[in-house]
Amino acid sequence: MMKGVSFHVTVAILALASSIASAYNPSPLQDFCVAINDIKSGVGSNVTLVNVDKLASLNTLGISLARLDFAPYGLNPPHTHDTELLIVIEGTLLVGFITSNPNNLFTKVLNKGDVFVFPIGLIHFQFNIEETVALAFTGLNIQNPRVTTKANVVFGFVPPINPNVLIKAFQLDKNVVEYHQKAFAPN
């Protein structure tokens, strides 16, 4: 019973904090979130989104929630979306974001109970740095979050970006670019 109460209190706090942070929903469009269903595959993380499509009472509130499950050393890869408030429930996460003009990397190791805010639109990540699973919840200031995972966009774009562009932009060998384009290509 205590775990259920703790979960509901956490969700309520995240919902309140997210709504205070921003009381608008900039886009009425239906957005999407793509997650890996098996934390043992891919990058070792799973995002379970709770948005207006799954919880109708969130309609017009401008908020959504997500549960992030991490396998040992699992990664939620660099991505962008609206403002996010994250709270660690179990485990230890290395989190960070990158600013622009100038480019700065801000990172922090979070333990159980720690909270972190990722500003809107900045590339950010979460990485489980331990041999045990980790769990976090997030509140987002939009009812239908748009997530852009950077590697998927750059290397998995259809039609593919000309390899010469990626070779020059990222200073990579042609074989490395071709490998990543095949790895991130849609099925």
Rank of each mutant, 00 (worst) to 15 (best):
A66I: 07
S41G: 06
S57K: 12
V115L: 01
H79F: 13
T138I: 14
R67I: 00
G96I: 07
F184L: 13
A183E: 11
V177Q: 05
V177G: 03
I161N: 08
V109I: 15
V47A: 13
S22H: 09
E90I: 05
T138Y: 04
G42C: 09
K182D: 06
P186H: 09
M1E: 12
F170D: 07
T148C: 14
V176C: 03
Y179H: 13
I120A: 13
N164E: 15
L65A: 09
N103T: 15
L105P: 04
N111I: 04
V165N: 08
F106D: 10
V43D: 00
V88E: 13
P78H: 09
F125T: 15
N141D: 12
P102F: 08
K174D: 00
F155G: 08
G62E: 07
L94V: 00
L58F: 15
I167V: 13
H180G: 01
F125G: 13
S19N: 02
A134D: 14
N51Y: 02
I89N: 04
S64Y: 07
E178M: 14
G74D: 10
M2I: 05
N187L: 11
L68D: 08
N111R: 09
F116R: 02
S45K: 08
Y73T: 04
L65K: 10
I13S: 10
P159V: 07
S18L: 05
Q171G: 03
A21H: 04
H124E: 09
I142K: 09
T83F: 05
I98A: 15
F70Q: 06
I63N: 06
G44W: 05
S41V: 02
T60A: 02
L122S: 05
R146S: 04
A12D: 12
T92F: 02
G74Y: 12
A136V: 06
L14C: 04
F116E: 01
S100K: 04
N111F: 10
K108V: 01
G91I: 08
Q181F: 11
A151P: 05
A183R: 14
L14A: 09
P163S: 05
S45C: 13
A15Y: 00
K150L: 15
